[in-house]
């Protein structure tokens, strides 16, 4: 599959954007700038990027608790994301969602989700909605290896395959369900094998190779648009940080992280870009500087924004009912 230079540059930009946003978020969290549960995507950038690059703006995604990368790759705005991490009124969710619940319906982002495995069924529902409306959109469903042990995995893939819904199931196999390694949480190595149960294509790709992800997902998207149903794509990858910020990661064998750092998806793309003269080093540096500025702009925006008025706490539970506020 020939990937255009524009696409390669776009993917590189997205990956760097994710990495830099996450590094900044990591430091800000460590400084105590904001609290909550923050699950970082560092190390897995090629998956979200390769997937979302295969999608159109009007396609949908469902995300996970580790959602920043998906949202950035689908076109989320760093300013509103950072403001949401800070719990500010200008955040994507007006400070009501935080890191784990960022959504942007205008970009087809049906939400990050704090419940492991919840997306399987919601994505299937989005697929049903698309099929019902008769458009050629698709929905990509991100989920982790451990979520494939939830009943939702089976329910979602069973329904999506039976009804031939346009859903691409993207398993980010980063080797751990929180602290429990894959070998300790399921009796298989390749999760793509599970596709056999649903009579759908299932493939495993190197999740740290953005080109491999892009190619596999593009093919699955094409099938889905033609009404040929879902695909299960397992992307093997690794998270560099703990499950959440503050996780001491005592469960990692010595040397494992270092091994995976050697497979960092970003230098791999940089090497390709230079070798194939897609960009010069100077152009790449310039792009990096631009992204640094975007991240700083997001931080400034978040810090300068106001916290929400407390009266908003009782709004938006329903479209038409404002709940009672405090009387004391």
């Amino acid at each position: 599959m020939k990937i255009s230079n524009d696409t390669i540059i776009e993917m590189y930009e997205k990956m760097v954007k994710i990495r830099k946003f996450e590094n900044r978020a990591m430091n800000l969290f460590a400084e105590g700038q904001f609290g909550g549960f923050v699950h970082l995507y560092i190390g897995e950038e090629a998956v979200a990027t390769g997937v979302c690059e295969s999608l159109r703006d009007d396609d949908y995604i469902t995300s996970t608790h580790r959602g920043h990368g998906h949202i950035i790759a689908k076109g989320g705005d760093l300013k509103y994301m950072m403001a949401e991490l800070y719990g500010k009124e200008t955040g994507y969710c007006k400070g009501k969602g935080g890191s784990m619940h960022i959504a942007d319906a205008t970009k087809g982002i049906l939400g990050a989700n704090g419940i492991v495995g919840a997306g399987h069924n919601i994505a299937t529902g989005a697929g049903l909605g698309i099929q019902y409306k008769g458009t050629d959109q698709v929905c990509a469903c991100f989920f982790g290896d451990a979520s494939t042990n939830q009943s939702t995995f089976h329910e979602g893939l069973n329904l999506a395959s039976t009804w031939k819904l346009p859903v691409i199931f993207i398993c980010e196999n980063n080797g751990y369900g929180i602290s429990v390694s894959q070998a300790r949480h399921q009796n298989i190595t390749d999760i793509s094998q599970r596709a056999v149960s649903y009579n759908i294509p299932g493939i495993t790709v190197d999740g740290n190779d953005v080109f491999a992800v892009f190619e596999a997902v593009s093919e699955a998207v094409a099938r889905a648009r033609k009404g040929q149903g879902p695909t299960l794509i397992e992307c093997k990858t690794y998270r560099w940080r703990g499950h959440f910020e503050g996780d001491p990661t005592v469960y990692r064998p010595e040397g494992e992280l270092e091994q995976w750092k050697k497979k960092d998806p970003i230098p791999r793309v940089e090497k390709y870009i230079l070798e194939n003269k897609v960009m010069t080093q100077a152009e790449m540096d310039k792009l990096n500087e631009k992204i640094d500025a975007l991240v700083e702009e997001a931080v400034d925006f978040a810090q300068a924004s106001k916290f929400p008025d407390v009266s908003s706490a009782v709004e938006d539970v329903y479209t038409d009912i404002v709940e009672e506020g405090r009387s004391r």
Binding site: A118, N121, A126, I130, E155
Partner: peptide, 18 residues
């Protein structure tokens, strides 16, 4: 639908979101 209550409610959530 299949006998699959999670999928039934989940499918409704996804379709309603659209």
């Amino acid at each position: 639908t299949p006998i699959s209550e999670g999928a039934i409610i989940g499918a409704a959530v996804g379709a309603a979101a659209l």
